[in-house]
Amino acid sequence: MVEIVFLGTAGSTFFGDNFTPSILVDNILLDCPSPCPYTLSRLGWLDKIQLILLTHVHPDHSLGVLELLWHLWIEGKGRRIQVIGPTGTHKFFENLLREIHPSKYQDILSHGVFFEAEPSTKIGNISFYRAKHTVKALAARLDFRDASVCYTGDTSPTRELEEGFRDCDLLIHEATYPPGMEEEAEKDGHSTPIQAANTARKVNAKYLALIHLPYARLGPQIEETYLSSAKKIFSNTFIPKPMDKFILEGGNLGYKS
């Protein structure tokens, strides 16, 4: 049994009380935007995080790690957090912290245990694949005893992801651009709900969750268009709300109240 909590689902920037992508899969946090550590702390979940997986270092996916390192340093308990990201992740945070606190940046950075993954890397039950974005980016597959969760991060469709995500139970796929803008999405390293649904169909996924929707630019009414266009291709598509909880067990996905 795997518990999945969609902490944030908005695309590129926050919208109301919904922040950018962050998904808690058991004790693994997929992406960590700046509001994420506070949200986890408020819910009493901050201590349960064993690993943060960053798909890339764009601020809407990564700056919560900076907040968390600062918090752990101030807290002074010596706690460290594991962070896996693409090549350059450690240097990215080192440069930021050097600018923020030149005399203490190494102490702050030491509260993170960084590992940089390459496409085709496998760490425990996590397999990494190359995502097609505007910076180095990873997509990830998490395989549990009786369930699998795949997360694209930000990407346009690729054959590599289609092969790596085959037969997954839950595909969490970004959908930054509206249907009909497939060419523009690919140029920007993103996808539309139609492309996400096509990927779900090709990989034989059981469920498709659309996230990273452009609420700030196009408003919440886009959900109807996104959902209807995706469902025409892949019927088991849904758009999670912030703080939606699900249980994935034996290939079946159920909502947890």
Rank of each mutant, 00 (worst) to 15 (best):
M1I: 12
V2C: 02
V2A: 12
I4C: 09
F6P: 05
L7Y: 11
N18R: 04
N18M: 11
N18Q: 04
F19E: 01
F19W: 06
T20D: 07
I23Y: 07
V25P: 05
D26T: 13
N27V: 10
L30A: 05
D31T: 15
S34N: 14
P35D: 01
L40I: 02
S41N: 13
K48C: 13
K48M: 14
I49V: 14
I49N: 01
I49S: 09
I49M: 09
I52N: 02
H58W: 12
H58R: 15
H61K: 15
L63W: 12
L63H: 12
E67Q: 07
L69K: 03
L72K: 13
I74Y: 07
E75G: 08
G76D: 03
K77L: 11
R79V: 08
R80K: 15
P86Q: 07
P86A: 13
T89R: 10
T89S: 06
F93W: 01
N95D: 15
R98S: 14
I100F: 12
I100W: 05
H101A: 14
P102T: 07
S103H: 10
Y105N: 03
D107P: 03
E116K: 08
A117H: 03
P119V: 06
T121R: 06
T121S: 15
K122C: 04
I123T: 10
G124V: 00
N125L: 12
N125A: 12
S127C: 06
S127E: 14
Y129W: 08
K136T: 08
L138W: 00
A139F: 05
A140N: 10
L142V: 08
V149W: 00
V149P: 02
T158N: 02
E163H: 09
D169N: 15
P178K: 10
P179W: 08
M181F: 14
E183Y: 06
K187F: 09
D188T: 05
I194R: 04
Q195Y: 00
Q195A: 04
Q195F: 09
N198F: 11
V203W: 01
L208P: 01
L208Q: 09
A209K: 10
H212C: 08
Y215F: 15
A216E: 06
Q221K: 13
T225D: 10
T225P: 05
T225L: 14
Y226F: 15
A230R: 07
I233L: 06
I233A: 02
F234N: 00
P240Y: 08
M243D: 03
D244C: 03
N252C: 14
N252E: 15
